[in-house]
Design a protein around this nucleic acid. Structure first.
Lengths: 243, 243
DNA sequence: CTGCGTCCTTAACTTTTGTTGGAACCGGGA
DNA sequence: TCCCGGTTCCAACAAAAGTTAAGGACGCAG
């Protein structure tokens, strides 16, 4: 993948979420980015490491997670092309969680130094990136609510719809189905339940004719039931810059 | 409370978490802040509202929360003097959650306009505030892990220790006990369990001689057991600016 | 094509947590 | 002082989720 295509993903997302000027686009197009390929299920940055780059997803899916003393793991977020999952490392130098690929992925790395200079040169871009990290935090807040208050089937539906709405923004929805490349083990880790229970819940949603999950692909069977179950209100994604 | 004391709380916290220059301190001391008193259990900003100010806690405790369709409420964070719980509203104009007082509180309001201008004038302060919102996000991540992966007693212990470590920074620890002004109902909402179960857990920790909870005050009975139970690693609080 | 490993699937059983309903306690105001 | 509302506390029962164990599907490497 050419480095231009990578920038395009970022620009199109910033345009959606914040509105971006021509000058700022030019700045991003001039950004030095080094591209690397990663296999599936591979760590990108680890908890405790000192990061010196931020990582832009050009292609593929990533996830952030934390592992606690007893070995249990919690997935904190799922990331899609155009996002910068570790932008926080710019000011929080030592990582407090892991970032890893879910699928084979193409990642572009931008050095902290480059970004710091860019911010001083163009405060409007700094604010845009700041806003980006704030949306990240808003998604964490909703994730807390999901894990803390919703019953397991609603949790699953909610995570699915959140992912779908974000994929929609980058034009990655195909009719009534979309990608969600997690194993049932990982779904459990995202929802705060065991893999066995995740399987029970998936089975239940399939039997009730709400949603089908097959080899990393979600197919919605009954959109109305799906939405009612998920109790989804997308305001927290802050997808419109004017709001 | 004089408006100077309010600024002092903020400055001392920024000094701890980011390091701050004399010029920046002068800027903060010159900031126009309007002070208001709030009774306990009173909303400050509501989900869906458009904020035009950020709110600095001079005295008292606040909490952020979200309420879902079935009426259940999840507490997302607890805030103490010196913090700006709704800094995110600077760029995410419509609130996606509630902010309310827990105790009677003194709050200082700074207009978004003032802050925006300040950032353009002093990028170093902007970065400090940005870092502050990133630490906020780091706390949300840990909160997800807490609610998603730890058994209820560990959840309670973890929230307690997090609060204690933050209170320690502002010199609000008194021997082996500290303030945590939540009802059992609210503790349940913070941990993602019912009030009845919260009561069971509190009783259990008391009977095991680990920690005592009485009218909004926590008394640690066995520090070692307490820490083991909580599985607390404070790195995510990013309290040292050098890291 | 065969064997191996990963993931999915299910069942039986245990533990944790939620629900309901009620009693005891406590502080503040009439 | 006594009452009132909000907490705290508790028990009995129900529901949700965790644990353990095992068989089957599937893709891939040899």
């Amino acid at each position: 993948m050419p480095s231009d295509a990578i920038r395009a993903a970022l620009i199109s997302r910033l345009r959606m979420s914040s509105g971006i000027s021509e000058e700022d686009i030019a700045e991003i197009e001039a950004l030095p980015i080094s591209v690397r390929q990663f296999p599936a299920e591979t760590p990108v940055v680890r908890d405790g490491e000192r990061a010196t780059n931020c990582c832009l997803i050009a292609d593929g899916f990533c996830a952030r997670s934390k592992t606690i003393a007893n070995g249990k793991r919690q997935i904190l977020s799922i990331h899609i092309p155009g996002e910068i999952p570790d932008l926080m490392s710019l000011f929080l130098h030592v990582m407090d969680h892991d970032l890893a690929t879910l699928t084979p992925a193409t990642l572009g790395f931008i050095s902290h130094e480059t970004l710091q200079k860019l911010h001083r040169r163009r405060p409007s871009l700094a604010e845009m990136f700041w806003r980006d990290t704030l949306i990240d935090a808003a998604m964490f807040r909703e994730w807390i609510v999901n894990v803390g208050q919703r019953p397991a089937p609603a949790r699953l539906a909610h995570v699915m719809i959140e992912l779908r709405e974000r994929l929609r923004l980058i034009g990655r929805i195909d009719g009534n189905n979309f990608e969600m490349p997690l194993t049932q083990e990982q779904i459990g880790e995202a929802l705060g339940i065991t893999a066995v229970h995740a399987n029970r819940v998936i089975k239940q949603l399939r039997q009730e004719g709400i949603v089908e999950l097959n080899r990393g692909r979600v197919t919605v069977l009954d959109e109305r039931k799906f939405q009612v179950l998920a109790d989804f209100d997308g305001r927290y994604l802050h997808q419109s810059p004017t709001l």
